[in-house]
Design a binder for these strands. Structure first.
Length: 289
DNA sequence: CTCCTGTCCTGCCGGC
DNA sequence: TGCCGGCAGGACAGGA
């Protein structure tokens, strides 16, 4: 489920929790996530504060003062719940990891599909180990623009939609925001990646930034009320232009005009769903020629 | 290198 | 109502 905006919101929700108190202990109710949780991790975190909390792509990293830290990925179905010191204990199915804080607060990782992961990293060298060593630029970073994106796409014959899902091309974009960004940029998802250059690459880079920022903004407003959303953070109602809207008309649809023009052909219009790389792509054939 | 397919796991939803 | 197939926001391994 979570792509960059959702992960960013989760990170922001975790910040005050880690700022308030050191970790008392890490409870592992289940160790077999996508990869086994390193047995040494609880020991490295117990009794220690998280001094630095950051996001890279869809990962959240938290470092203790000495350098060791955790790296968290929510996979497809991972969620985080936050409990204050006053909140009564609550266990739900698929709660796998609990950070017990020294002030009594708790952070719970719930992940039914267990595609998520929790690992051990070190502040000194995390950037040079997998998966970070090859990871593409942060789309919300200062250095990201059309030229950078165009350079990343050079030599790529695969469809632009597939390329955007590759974390080594640009970090943090997933299936939803790849579709939404291509829609905003007016680029057909089947276009060869390397053919997106110049002004189109600028448009796409801007579209990626804009759609991610918009989603964060919406999530940020939800974050303040996270208690009302069942303690879960990072999961908010999005409004998508094309994602999961097959058959509907896109926001600035020209489909009616096209339908009239193509009346004789009987060709159907509206948002289309196609399969690329085994995953759904949604796009508007009228706006994304 | 890049590309493509299959796989991990559970829950939900629509169709019969 | 119950069962079954298909699908889900991710990432990796392995082979071409």
């Amino acid at each position: 489920m979570p792509e960059l905006p959702e992960v960013e919101i989760v990170k922001r929700g975790l910040e005050p929790v880690f700022a308030r108190a050191p970790i008392a202990r890490l409870e592992l109710k289940r160790k077999d996530l996508r990869a086994p949780i390193p047995p040494a991790l609880p020991k490295k975190l117990a009794g220690r504060p998280i001094q630095t909390l950051m996001r890279r792509g869809k990962y959240i990293l938290g470092f203790t003062p000495g350098g060791p830290g955790f790296v968290l990925h929510l996979g497809m179905s991972g969620t985080i719940r936050i409990y204050g010191p006053q909140d009564p204990p609550e266990a739900r199915p698929h709660d796998h990891v609990i950070w017990h804080m020294q002030d009594g607060g708790r952070i719970v990782l719930n992940d039914p599909r267990r595609f998520g992961s929790l690992g051990l990293v070190h502040e000194e060298n995390w950037q040079s180990v997998a998966p970070f060593h090859a990871m593409g630029p942060e789309p919300l970073g200062n250095g990201f623009n059309g030229k950078v994106l165009a350079a990343q796409l050079l030599g790529r014959i695969s469809p632009i939609k597939i390329a955007l899902l590759d974390q080594n091309i640009v970090a943090g974009v997933g299936n939803i925001y790849a579709c939404e960004a291509l829609y905003r940029a007016g680029i057909n998802p089947a276009r060869p990646a390397a053919s997106v250059q110049g002004e189109e690459a600028e448009n796409l880079a801007s579209a990626i930034r804009d759609v991610l920022n918009a989603a964060i903004k919406v999530g940020g407003s939800t974050l303040r009320d996270y208690k009302h959303t069942d303690g879960k953070i990072g999961y908010f109602q999005h409004h998508f232009a094309v994602y999961d809207r097959a058959g509907s008309r896109c926001p600035d649809c020209r489909c009616d005009a096209e339908k009239n023009a193509a009346k004789n052909t009987g060709e159907s219009r509206g948002i289309q769903r196609i399969i690329q790389g085994g995953r759904s792509t949604f796009y508007c054939p009228s706006r994304q020629e």
